[in-house]
């Protein structure tokens, strides 16, 4: 009813929290890496080394899983909007990779609780990311046995890059006050 419509002034001034700003900054950083990475060649379209993982793991250690999940989701969506791949097969790949790596990070946090450093989390996230992407690529797009032969290679790459970004994060965190 127009007569009883409340003032919607509160809706106009979007109150943003410190966390929102943090998420926005981190996501922007992750998206930049994501975009740079998309220019790299890959044996399977959409399968990338995942250097944006650095931002995810750093966020996880500094601000917790929830914030990391937001950063990852924004990266995937905004990144694909910028690349023009939103809702395309490429998007489905990076989306499934993101979901798998977030799930792995969440599970690891619940199960291990302590003793695991950035390198361990980064390895888990990278492998889950690759496995998730591969599963979707295989089941949804090209269920050909020949594709399976690529999988060990892709997972090796995931371990390598996971290790690399893990070490970068660990070094970075040490230098933080």
């Amino acid at each position: 009813m127009p007569a009883t419509r409340p003032s919607h002034a509160a809706g106009h001034t979007l109150t943003t929290t410190v966390e929102d700003h943090r998420i926005a900054w981190l996501a922007a950083l992750a998206i930049t890496i994501h975009l740079a990475e998309s220019a790299l060649p890959s044996p399977l379209p959409g399968v990338k080394p995942g250097l944006a993982n650095i931002v995810t793991i750093a966020t996880l250690f500094l601000y917790g899983w929830r914030t990391a999940a937001w950063v990852v989701s924004l990266r995937v969506i905004v990144g694909s909007l910028l690349l023009g791949t939103f809702l395309s097969p490429t998007f489905a790949l990076s989306f499934s990779g993101a979901v798998a790596s977030l799930a792995a990070l969440g599970l690891a946090g619940l199960v291990v609780r302590s003793g695991l450093g950035p390198v361990g989390y980064s390895l888990l996230a990278a492998m889950a990311h690759m496995a998730g992407q591969f599963a979707v690529a295989y089941w949804l797009f090209i269920p050909h046995p020949a594709l399976l032969r690529l999988f060990p290679l892709l997972m090796s790459a995931a371990v390598l890059f996971g290790l690399l970004s893990g070490i970068i994060v660990a070094t970075m965190l040490r230098r933080l006050p």
């Binding site: 291990v112 003793g115 695991l116 450093g117 950035p118 390198v119 361990g120 390895l123 888990l124 371990v159 290790l163 893990g166 070490i167 660990a170 070094t171 040490r174």
Partner: peptide, 10 residues
């Protein structure tokens, strides 16, 4: 830099 847990995961 690399914890024991990390080595295990690796």
């Amino acid at each position: 830099l690399v914890t024991r847990g990390d080595w295990l995961v690796l």
